[in-house]
């Protein structure tokens, strides 16, 4: 049963990796990266039950957290072109650069 789940997870990983490689847009890649993180979480969960020692199940929770924060960081980078301080600059000129199309970004 758990072997079957492992196989299904591996299949999903392959598909997601193919999407990450093929693209074509940035958002496909962000989503694929996020999905791969989710597969990692699921695989750690399944692996515990597959080997009969589900002690590391709570570690999977931490991976889910990293995955979430990482995705937010990547998306924030897209929106603001910076990871750190994105508050308006002191001169009153906002640091916000608008969306990607306005910057002539090509996929």
């Amino acid at each position: 049963m758990f072997s079957l789940a492992t196989l299904a997870l591996f299949l999903g990983m392959c598909i997601v990796l193919a999407r990450l490689y093929a693209g074509p847009t940035l958002y496909d890649r962000v989503l694929a990266g996020n999905a791969f993180g989710t597969y990692t979480v699921l695989f750690i969960g399944v692996l515990g039950f597959l080997t009969g020692r589900p002690d590391f199940l709570d570690i999977a929770l931490l991976y889910a957290l990293i995955n979430f924060v990482g995705t937010i960081a990547v998306l924030k980078y897209f929106r603001y072109r910076a990871i750190g301080d994105t508050s308006p600059s002191p001169k009153g000129k906002p640091v916000l650069h608008g969306n990607l199309k306005d910057q002539g970004y090509k996929h």
Binding site: L20, L26, G33, F36
Partner: peptide, 11 residues
């Protein structure tokens, strides 16, 4: 495409 490279290195 360097963005894809960054995501792939995360994977």
């Amino acid at each position: 495409h360097l963005f894809a490279v960054v995501m792939l290195s995360g994977v």
